[in-house]
Structures are given as C-alpha cells and as structure tokens.
Design a binder for these strands. Structure first.
Lengths: 225, 225
DNA sequence: GATTTCCCTTACACCATCTGTAAGTATTTT
DNA sequence: AAAATACTTACAGATGGTGTAAGGGAAATC
C-alpha cells in the first residue's frame, strides 16, 4: 500500500484529501507546516508527497527543495488556480507534477497513480552492458533503438542482467518464469531462450547470452565499457 | 527528428557528443557557455537539453534553473563521477535525469530516448470529466483504478474527450479510426463504440457516452466537477 | 571414432486479444 | 404501424505469446 504524506494547513482541505486518499486504499498521513518538516517527512519514507505551496511558515517550494535534497520520491504540488502563473516557475524547479486547487478528485488520484507508477520503477534501467532494460515494462534499449520484450523474454533477460557476468542456472531461470510451485520443462525454457536470442538479434545483439554447459547461462561481458 | 542542445565547454567531449547523437539521427546543436544562454536555448525549442554541470561562466545548475523557469523540456545533466556526491542535491532540484562522465555511449542514448519518450506525452493526461486518459498509451484512469484500452477504443474515447460536451459526428470518429483514405463502415464504428462502452463499465463509467440521434456522440458532462 | 549427453532449432497446436462483417434486436421518430 | 436509426451479439480471420514434441547439432566421454 502506498504511503502518501499530505502537507496542508487548511484543515478543511486536509480532511478532504485524507478522505479521498483513504477511500482509495492509500495510506494517508497529514502534517501541518512546521520547522524541519522535511526531515520528519523523509523519516517516514513516503511513496509520494502531496505538498501545498501556500503555507504560513515557509513556502512549499522550500520544503520541496529540502525534500529533493534528501532524495525523497515524487512530489505533487498543489496550488490555487489564481496564483498559478506566479508560482509555476517555482514548481518546475522541484516538483514532479503540480495541480491547481480546487481539483477534481479523480484527476488528483490519476496524477497520484501516475506518479507512483512512474517512480515505482526506480532506480530505473538495468544496465546490461551493451544494452539497457526497463525491468517494469521489459523495454529493451540499445542506442536509439528500443523494443518491448514479451513477458517470458523479459523475465529471462532481467534475471541474466541482474547477475551480469555470473552464471544463472536453468533451475533459477525456470523459477523466474514460472515460480517455485510450478515446474514446466527445461525444454520450454530452452525454447524461450532461443526466442529471446532471436529477438536480441533484431537489435544486433548477437552472441550476448553465453551457454555454460551443464551449469546454465550468463550474459557475455560487453565489448566496450 | 528530435532536437537536442548540448551545453559543454570541453571541445573534445563536445565533438564526441555531437558525433554520438548525429549518428543516431538526432539533431544535435552544441553551445558553449555564455551569458543569457538559457534564453537562447529556449528560443531553439529543443526536445532535450544535455547540460554539463562544470562550466566556467556559471554553474550548470543555474542554467538548469533558468531553463526550467522558461518551461523548457527535459534536461539531462552530465557530471564527473568524482564530483557526483557534491552536486547530486543540485541535480535533483532541476534536472530530469543525470549521468556521470565518462559515460557509456549506449547508456547515454538510452537515457536520452527515455527522456524523450517520457516528455513526448506532455502536456499529459486528457481530462474526461470523471476520468482521465493518457493519449499516448490509451491508459484510462479513474480513481486509483486504471486499464489500457485497445487502439480503437482509445481513439474513439480520445476524440470524444478532446471535444468534451461537444457532439462528435460519426464521420469524424470514423476518420479517427481509419483515416480519410479508407472508409470502412459506420456499423464497424458502432461495434467499436459498444465495445468501448462495455470496457468503460469495468471502471463503473456507465452512460458516459451519449447518443445524439442523427448527429453523433458526445461525452456526458461529469456529475461533480 | 562411436556413443552418450546436453543443447539448439523448428514446426505445431492452443489460447487470448483485437478486429471487421453480418445478421438480428431494440429504440426512437414519423 | 412503419420506417429510420441505434444497438447487441455471434462469427471468423489475424496476430502474438506460449508449451509441447520431435529431430538436428555440438560437445564431452568412453
């Protein structure tokens, strides 16, 4: 369950936000403005921070800055519509998204889900040496080219890329594909490996999966690091 | 073709970057550091800015700040590995991604493509009233739920959402589906509409597409704005 | 060098999804 | 009531992902 911290001084608005989030099964923690709030927030390790920009003590922008300095996840800023233009440049500096108040409930939730999704995949691409792999979408990047792998291809390549230059056993790969409870066939793995190799060839990634007879497979080290 | 502006004072590095980008079919424009560079960059309307952080005149971070203030697209920062820690907090404040020098060519390109992709979809979600629609992926958001529409469903809903509360003619929707050159069938449109309505029901979006007999269809105005 | 063991490839069938066609039903208008 | 318009359902083709099965190939072993 995603944990969301709300920083908002208007009590009515605050309650409304909590209500909206909790009804969607999100963990909502509300805070009012106070000194050193950024550290407190960071300690709670939220998945997202909902930050009002009009706070009495300090500007939401300052908090945003502090939060980002601690490496905290996505920040969604709230601002009133009539002040939008004044503050837009500030928002762009730190926030990951912003929304004007009053805001549509579903719009707010959509943005939140969007941000959670976007940041769920951090720390981002897996480095496979001569290519990169998005572990969430199984999108494979090489140079300016990219393609989306099928589920099975993605699982295998991810397992190999996560243990780069290490041998990964067939059993381990089978587990990646079908879990522990279900055992399909080592031949099925073999077929999927062939398919993956064929797909890799589309991006000129030939001979990148090395066979270690009797042990398993591993990614060949890249040519030029 | 994506236009990328490079801000880098080291001539060797600059040429290398230009070379890498151009070989990938990207439009590369290189600039060295000078006063008011941000305005010049903004005038070129780049799709991405590749920004070195160690510049003689001013810090890359300042440029980043100025660029973001003008609403310029994604910024990818370059920093040398040994100064990474010193500057990480700065990068987080403005840049959309960062990379350490020296960097792997493919890794650089992968990041660039990633950013271009991420920002291609701006300004983001289409507001459909009681739902939101990502016009690029045809992902439909309502509350915390979401699902991915098929291509045809997405095209229809997008056309309706873009003209919210306006009647969209069948002919216009047909054009959205199959273009001007190919005319399939109004019945085919009808079937796809039924399918879209059925899919919308999965998110409890009932009766959201209104039929205007003899004219076309329109999105019903949302209940609570 | 022959045999065995392991690895690889190919072709097939199944399933799911998306799609247009066609026929029939329901609703509104005249 | 009849006609026009809108809707629903079922069907078939196309595509893509998947496991199965059978056979070819390469490497190790004897």
């Amino acid at each position: 369950m995603a944990r969301i911290i709300i920083v908002e001084d208007d009590s009515w608005m605050r309650e409304e936000l909590i209500d909206i989030l909790q009804k969607e099964g999100l963990e909502a923690i509300a805070m009012t403005d106070f000194h050193d709030i950024a550290l407190q927030i960071a300690a709670l390790a939220p998945d997202l921070v909902l930050l009002d920009i009009n706070l009495p003590e300090q500007s939401g922008f300052d908090i945003c800055k502090s939060l980002k300095a601690t490496g905290i996840g996505p920040i969604l800023m709230l601002t009133s519509r009539d002040k939008l233009q004044d503050e837009l440049h500030g928002l762009h500096l730190g926030a990951d998204d912003y929304l004007t108040k009053p805001c549509n409930r579903d719009r707010l939730l959509a943005r939140i889900q969007n941000l959670l999704r976007r940041f769920a995949g951090q720390p981002g691409l897996i480095d496979g040496g001569s290519f990169s792999l998005d572990p969430n979408t199984f999108t494979l990047y090489k140079g300016s080219q990219s393609l989306v792998l099928s589920a099975n291809e993605g699982k295998i390549l991810l397992a190999l890329a996560q243990n780069r230059a290490e041998v990964v056993s067939k059993a381990a790969l089978c587990e990646c594909l079908w879990g522990t409870d279900q055992y399909i066939d080592e031949n099925a793995l073999q077929v999927n490996l062939t398919r993956l190799r064929k797909t890799l060839r589309q991006l000129n990634l030939e001979n990148h999966i090395e066979t270690i007879r009797g042990q398993g497979y591993r990614l060949r080290r890249q040519r030029k690091p």
